[in-house]
Write a protein that binds this DNA or RNA. Sequence first.
DNA 1: GCGGCACTATGAAGCGTTTCAAATTCTTGT
DNA 2: ACAAGAATTTGAAACGCTTCATAGTGCCGC
Lengths: 348, 348
Amino acid sequence: MRRRTILDVAERAGVSVGTVSNALNRPEIVAEKTLASIQAAIDELHFVPSAAARQMTGARNPAIGLIVLDIGNPFFAEVYRGVEDVAGEAGYVVVVCSFAGDPAHERRQLRQLEEQRVAGILATRVGKGNSRVYGRMRKTGTPVVMLDQRSASKDQCSVSVDDVAGGRLAGEHLCELGHRRLALVNGPRDWSQCADRRTGFLAAAEAAGAQLLAGADIEAEQMTIDAGEEAARKLLAGEQLPTGIFCANDLLALGVEHALIAAGHRVPEDFAIVGYDDVAFATMAFVPLTSVRQPAYELGRRAAEQLLDEADDEKHKHERVVFAPELVVRASTGAAIDAAPDRSPIRA
Amino acid sequence: MRRRTILDVAERAGVSVGTVSNALNRPEIVAEKTLASIQAAIDELHFVPSAAARQMTGARNPAIGLIVLDIGNPFFAEVYRGVEDVAGEAGYVVVVCSFAGDPAHERRQLRQLEEQRVAGILATRVGKGNSRVYGRMRKTGTPVVMLDQRSASKDQCSVSVDDVAGGRLAGEHLCELGHRRLALVNGPRDWSQCADRRTGFLAAAEAAGAQLLAGADIEAEQMTIDAGEEAARKLLAGEQLPTGIFCANDLLALGVEHALIAAGHRVPEDFAIVGYDDVAFATMAFVPLTSVRQPAYELGRRAAEQLLDEADDEKHKHERVVFAPELVVRASTGAAIDAAPDRSPIRA
DNA sequence: GCGGCACTATGAAGCGTTTCAAATTCTTGT
DNA sequence: ACAAGAATTTGAAACGCTTCATAGTGCCGC
């Protein structure tokens, strides 16, 4: 079936194309019965207007891009939910680009978004060599809001969480529990979030006189469960074993925990673990995970709001929102037993 | 900065627009040095061609839509990964629409995709009242491939897993372990996957002489952790308690497990639980989850391949691929202890 | 019965590309 | 130096829609 155009509809309804266009966009100015016959024609012909043609005449593309590292990470899925709720409300569609850490892939996706003339972009990370692309987009009028990372300059919006504070929270918690031999399982340090968490963590450790063990300052390439398991094996192979481990996200932490337990160690008795993000699964883990919580959904909402405001409002004011992280203590640091009761025979 | 057009580039480079277009799309037919000066002009002006204008002239929109219930479900995230890998390879962009079960939202997203003239759509579920929309799309030449559910008619592609078999697997497993009082925590039954899993489960139960307890045939509206917790509370409030529980996905199962344990019950001693999907987190659960595995990534890949084939190949042949599910036994049915060793003091 | 007014409908221009037949320029062989 | 052919470039039409100045219609009160 040939694709129908507005002209087909006009002919069928016996009116001009202008009138059909009006019926579509400003129905209030066209007469009742004209409207009815046009609607009938549209239905009969299964007409669906072309977004491309509409865009040609100056309309904005009601879509925004969301660039995330990995949508399989529940943290980003939650951020997405916040974005989607705001964008959907405003009639926008969200194009998720999950580039899995590959800068070339990211560049390709960005290019697509740029050609599509999306109304704006939410970036949770700027891959190596791609900051120029973002710069170009902003110059040509496509707003870019930094999500989960603070923008470097004042003339760009960002919604983030204080990662240095988050790292410190984790460090202080472990130190307060008496841990002096620490390990860090981090993600790529060229990602500002990871660098910041590390900074905060090290500061807390130093303040408490604890130290990061040599060889226990791991920088995993991916921030996944698998990478966490591998990191745990590395830790176990070290000369000296840590007792407190801070992981830069919950996926890594879950992997670390799983690998340690599989190797016959106990959590938290042998190793205390702190994760980051407080994803829903942290609660249900084999040993429920202590984690630094970020308000993911809210992060997504605020960022989307800022983006749409910048896209729509001529006199938009840039803003850099910073949320405070929050420590959620669970069994993996032994400081508390989560909702789940102890299952040892003693109590059974 | 005003948006630059191909005309600006042409002027700057001192050639005609046609030549610029050629340089962009068929560089092999334009002279070396012309190419160079055009490239220079493009760079200087930060020119990025408009996808809309290109589409106007007949080019296809290199995008495909992926409709999922909830991208926060790791199962769908994994499916997405498969889709993205294939689509990205072919130069397509994937637009994820996670409509969270709201048919109106789904309709809105579909409409957008339709107006955008995407090259095709991957649908993991057809919401109530939206099947006509899909029908219209297919009539106007937009291929729609069913993902994770078998298409009703032979003239449409689908890639699915045999859900009846999956349900049966779960039922047989529980019955073999001696469970006779069963419960089912299902998702919306108007979703074919849920209906099928139930059918298989009931068949297995009947064959083994086991029964689904009255009031233990739960149909949750959402298939989330929260919904699982609520379902567990309902089960506990019933007159008779089941001993074997089958949940239609892992999120529900995780929720059920969590709520049961939080209420002081033991898994698998008091309640054996079987989930569905075998998401990565199932392994790391408080009590690692027995689950019916679906090849999520492969599902996504195959579906995307079919879709692109249908979109590109004139003489495409429809195909209905059905994968077989597979039972993965872990601690939640007590039939095996997963990688994680027993933590009871006896062994410690 | 007519001027004036409020509604409605019209149609052509314009948006940024691609395409393709036609025009132009360059090469080559003689 | 010239014709023929190859290589390159040109320019206008076409794509489907919105916009807006203009034209048309119908109704009111006098």
